[in-house]
Design a protein around this nucleic acid. Structure first.
Ligand SMILES: [Mn+2]
Ligand SMILES: [Mn+2]
Ligand SMILES: [Zn+2]
Ligand SMILES: [Zn+2]
Lengths: 144, 144
DNA sequence: GCACTAATCGGAACCATTCCCAGTTTGTGC
DNA sequence: GCACAAACTGGGAATGGTTCCGATTAGTGC
């Protein structure tokens, strides 16, 4: 998905890549911001947003934008899927067995030129299990 | 997915249901707002939002909240899937062949109590086909 | 009609993200 | 190293979808 020509690799971009490279947590922009500031105390939030966008367009990171939630970013660009906790909003990687089945999906695209799809699971993470409240606490449920 | 006890069916709620019942377009909140105002010229946007939420919690409508985009609402509550145009943002229903394959997906939930999943396709609608710009025009690409 | 509650209105507040711009850094050609 | 243009940056204001709040209205049971 690398787009356009290569961009200059500035300090802030290196720092962002490094942050995303060493966490498994799918941080939000402001989490990336505060982590980057440990190394480069003067970066601005705007720069972090701008560069997260750029890096994503280059295909060097991935953007996880789910359902009315704050955007999250992922340093792992290989194809994989995610699950979001409906209670606390955290996102984790998941393993999908039979993943190859997904490519068998044949759709009537209604005249669309179909580019891809998004598959995201939802549930409740271990930490909040047993909290099975029916009323919402945080996330907006299933989104789609 | 009907939640809580039944709500009173006020004029504005009936109007919203009616609007969503007779369109296939998956309108946004402000589109619903202006359509409802053709019948009830005094409804406020806040009321529309509040009631869209309520009706969704009742399971009478569905919320389509995709990737940093404005939320959309769907009067069709039976299970089906969608595709979003990356250029203009419109959303349409799609037919997924082999839909039953989706239930075969076995995942390692990483300790999550898995509730469901979201599957949304992306592409370019007929109206904007041939416009295959590589630079973004509108949507944020794939989201997830 | 009266009391009590739920629903609504209108507008302000919220907040993640984007935009703007003056100043700085970087790359390039000499 | 020097000059110049292009790319990048910080800081702060603007944006816009959504939520929140105080005041008003409509409904319901008596
Ligand atoms: Mn991931
Ligand atoms: Mn639909
Ligand atoms: Zn959780
Ligand atoms: Zn389109």
């Amino acid at each position: 998905m690398s787009n356009g020509q290569a961009i200059r690799m500035t300090e802030s971009r290196k720092a962002i890549l490094s942050v995303l490279g060493r966490t498994r947590a799918h941080p939000t922009a402001d989490e990336v911001y505060s982590m980057v500031r440990e190394d480069l105390p003067k970066v601005s939030l705007g720069t972090v947003y701008r560069n997260l966008d750029l890096l994503a367009k280059q295909g060097l990171i991935r953007t996880l934008a789910s359902a009315g939630e704050q955007r999250r970013y992922d340093g792992m660009v290989d194809d994989h899927h995610h699950i979001r906790c409906e209670v606390c909003g955290r996102m984790d990687d998941i393993e999908v067995g039979n993943a190859e089945l997904l490519d068998e999906l044949i759709i009537d695209g209604r005249g669309y030129d179909v580019h891809g799809y998004t598959l995201c699971f939802s549930g409740v993470c271990r930490e909040y299990a047993g909290n099975g409240k029916s009323h919402e606490q945080n996330g907006k449920g299933q989104g789609e």
